[in-house]
Design a protein around this nucleic acid. Sequence first.
DNA 1: CTTTCAGCCTGACGGC
DNA 2: TGCCGTCAGGCTGAAA
Length: 268
Amino acid sequence: MPELPEVETTLRGIEPHIAGTEVEQLRVFNGSLRWPVTEGLSEIVKGQRLLSLTRRAKYLLLHLERGSMMIHLGMSGSLRLVDKNTERRKHDHIEMHMSNGKCLRYHDPRRFGCWLWSDNGHPQLDHLGPEPLTDDFSGKRLFELSRKRKVAVKPFIMDNKIVVGVGNIYASEALFRSGIRPDREAGRISLQRYELLAGHIKDVLRLAIEQGGTTLRDFVNGNGEPGYFQQTLMVYGRGGQPCGQCDKPLSEIRLGQRSSVFCCHCQR
DNA sequence: CTTTCAGCCTGACGGC
DNA sequence: TGCCGTCAGGCTGAAA
């Protein structure tokens, strides 16, 4: 599923192939995504030059001459570059033909994603916290914003107002590396432990982006699905299996309606 | 203000 | 073989 590293990987994979080209044609086959695809999108973007592509949180932004497209991959979305006469697969909902012959296909079985056009900014981006891989995100920030908060630390670090782009997988892994129980009250964790946690969040995201390099080639070539993070996972999806550090069985609980796996011996 | 929770959607999987 | 229930997940917005 697309987390921040995969969105970043997608961006790096497609950017060099289509930045600077012009939109020849955009076709919407099924526009009922998380929010309906912007009405009249094909007519709006036709003929506009794609100036640049950026990422904010898990959103991809395509900057065109007269505005920008905000794309989210939701839970099951993916973008890939294909030859324009490649046959469409089931759940290929949108495609964008560029002036250099490249075709960008959006595939999303669960349709939790979005494609929204705006010529004056996207309100969804206005109240987001800092990017995790910048100096604006630190243990000090986690410590200060968590004082008097009763929420468990795992949903706390997954809150987009605190820091963006930390999904269930990487929250679980960073907490394991930090030796912190996911259900510990956010307001009762020391500055020192938050500094450790912030460092591990950055490490785990950076590592996943590096490993995404393999996925990147697949995306561009239109082969296979990403499977790069499986080996590195210590706790996510491993409830009941032995802990990689102490061999005791990993515990599984639910926090904020999300499954949370941890080691009750290694994490306190 | 904080916290909780339903809803959006399909595919995979287990039980019968 | 198929049917049915459950789960997975990010994000929003309403309710408590």
